[in-house]
């Protein structure tokens, strides 16, 4: 596994490497040179190659992180510090977002249910939406936006100050020392945050349904226990853990490979948030599909 630091010079899509630059000889035939041992000086700029390379490097980093998790010594202090930091920047916004989110879902589901005269199922339906979808997505939002951007900016500025190079030179792996504690901290915060958002969202939904829409507490809870089951909570937490891992790895990847100076770090943070969002929403789709296929709904 080569460290990601070497990706810097040629990591990008590099569209400027035109087919004519570099070798004077005919480009396409250069591959069939007599001395096949010599690698061509300029790579053929296949469309999408840069993308493929980036994706590969991202997966390589993910694997390296997974392997380094089991390497001793575990950086416990760094982990606690990062956990504390990520928790402190995400808890309050998550709570504040989840109350209106739970309320919106409760109101929407409530009015829809009353249209089809199924008011008694409002509680169950809104809680399921809340736990399975809303809460992991709120977690994704905050983990990518608040935690991921902070991790990416931190690692990025350390990279351009050559701190990570210095660490490697001293025989200390930045992945084990810096990235692993951050990714683990992100996962833990995501799981806990997901629990909190589920509770707060459900309470918010209950409040709005019972107080604003004249629902009865009994019907709300009865429908909840009729429709919801424990695996709903499991998948929610699995999603959150996976989101935390992806957000941590993507942020670390972009942070370890900023292009150019401080401006590059800014771009990297921006990209890391966008990439994480895209990935998380896609992964959410896939996981939801798998879950609905595999786990039979309660009472079916």
């Amino acid at each position: 596994m080569t460290g990601p630091a070497e990706e810097k010079p040629d990591g990008g899509p590099a569209p400027e490497n035109g087919p004519t630059s570099g070798r004077p000889g005919p480009g396409p035939t250069a591959e069939g040179d007599a001395d096949g041992s010599r690698p061509p000086a300029v790579e053929q700029p296949l469309p999408g190659l840069g993308w493929l390379r980036q994706t590969g490097a991202l997966f390589a980093l993910a694997v390296a992180v997974l392997r380094a998790v089991f390497k001793r010594p575990f950086q416990f202090r760094e982990f606690v510090e990062q956990f504390w930091f990520i928790a402190s920047v995400t808890i309050l916004p998550a709570a504040l977002v989840s109350i209106p989110f739970g309320a919106v879902i409760a109101l929407q589901v409530g009015s829809l249910a009353s249209q089809i005269s199924a008011q008694s199922f409002t509680g169950g339906a809104s809680v399921l939406v809340n736990i399975q979808q809303a809460s992991p997505l709120i977690v994704a939002l905050l983990i990518a936006g608040a935690a991921g951007s902070a991790i990416c900016a931190d690692l990025g500025s350390r990279t351009i100050r050559e701190e990570l190079d210095a660490m490697e030179v001293m025989g200390v792996s930045p992945i084990q020392r810096l990235v692993v504690p951050r990714v683990l901290a992100t996962i833990c915060v995501a799981v806990l945050l997901n629990g909190m958002v589920s509770v707060v969202g459900t309470l918010g939904g209950y409040f709005f349904n019972v107080v604003m829409q004249d629902g009865t507490p009994g019907a709300y809870i009865a429908s909840f226990s009729a429709l919801a089951q424990l695996p709903d909570l499991y998948i929610s937490e699995i999603k959150a853990a996976l989101f935390g891992f992806i957000a941590g790895v993507v942020a670390a990847y972009r942070g370890l490979n900023p292009r150019g100076g401080p401006k590059g770090v800014g771009d990297a943070v921006n990209q890391s948030v966008v990439i994480t969002f895209l990935l998380l929403f896609f992964v959410n789709l896939v996981l939801t599909g798998i879950y609905l296929q595999l786990v039979p709904p309660k009472g079916a």
Partner: peptide, 18 residues
């Protein structure tokens, strides 16, 4: 990584941990 422990490198800009 193992061989790097034999080295001491002084960076052009110091590269201290901020």
């Amino acid at each position: 990584y193992e061989a790097r422990k034999l080295f001491g490198l002084m960076f052009q800009d110091g590269a201290l941990f901020g």
